[in-house]
């Protein structure tokens, strides 16, 4: 049943093989083969970490949330009823990030706006052709956009991260967030408007093209 539902999703041969392999890995994971589940982890951890990082805007919190998410997913694997395993997994990741956000807000340890950018992350993103000034401006812009995203309510934040940063389709976002497609579109539009308004308050950090369009 699970296999058939996966095959219905796409008829493309390489993707069909991927889903068949994925179904096999899930079945073996349910038999107690941790190695099979870890292959799924390896396949999705990059996508999942990107979402967690954008939602939490902190590498350590994102890593903790992602590790918790995979443990939760392994424990809840019996509840997976077919369909898109990616969407099922991302729903767990998003909900776990919400839990971490609320926990962090309760503890009031640090302000999300003051989170430093991970040094290793910045190094990887360095473009050797750009000048130090350009590099600094780019860092500031990324920090600004990150702050704009984290200033959003949870549902708007999730919608804009999944759509505009990670490139998910409306239908996938609807499945992940358990919302209607129309609701997802509305949330995306409202989130974009709020980010634009947030950025316009710091127009000096924005690229000239964007700054001119705001005027």
């Amino acid at each position: 049943m699970r296999l058939l539902s996966s095959l219905e999703i796409c008829s493309h041969l390489p993707l069909r093989k991927l889903f068949m392999d994925q179904d096999n890995l899930i079945e073996r994971s349910l038999q107690g083969e941790l190695e099979a589940f870890n292959q799924l982890v390896i396949e999705y951890q990059g996508l999942a970490y990107g979402v967690a990082y954008r939602l939490l805007d902190d590498p350590d919190s994102a890593a903790d949330a992602l590790q918790d998410s995979f443990i939760k997913a392994f424990r809840a694997l019996e509840n997976y009823r077919g369909g898109s395993f990616k969407s099922w997994l991302m729903r767990i990741v998003v909900n776990t990030c919400y839990d971490h956000l609320r926990s962090r807000q309760r503890k009031r340890t640090e302000s999300l706006d003051d989170m430093p950018v991970e040094e290793e992350y910045v190094t990887v993103l360095t473009d050797r052709s750009e000048s130090p000034q350009e590099y600094a401006e780019r860092r500031e812009l990324q920090a600004l956009i990150g702050s704009a995203i984290t200033s959003l309510p949870e549902v708007l934040r999730t919608a804009i991260v999944l759509r505009d940063v990670e490139g998910y389709a409306y239908e996938e976002i609807a499945e992940i967030t358990s919302a209607a497609v129309g609701t997802v579109k509305s949330r995306i539009n409202r989130a974009r408007g709020r980010v634009r308004d947030y950025l316009s308050k710091n127009a000096e950090l924005l690229p000239s093209v964007y700054r001119h369009s705001l005027e």
Partner: peptide, 24 residues
């Protein structure tokens, strides 16, 4: 137009590198 520009900024965000493996 401003929404379209905002989307462009968001889409230009670089991908986040994985800090470590999360295998269980």
């Amino acid at each position: 137009n401003t929404l379209r520009q905002t989307v462009q900024l968001l889409q230009d965000m670089p991908p986040v590198p994985l800090p470590r493996s999360f295998t269980l």
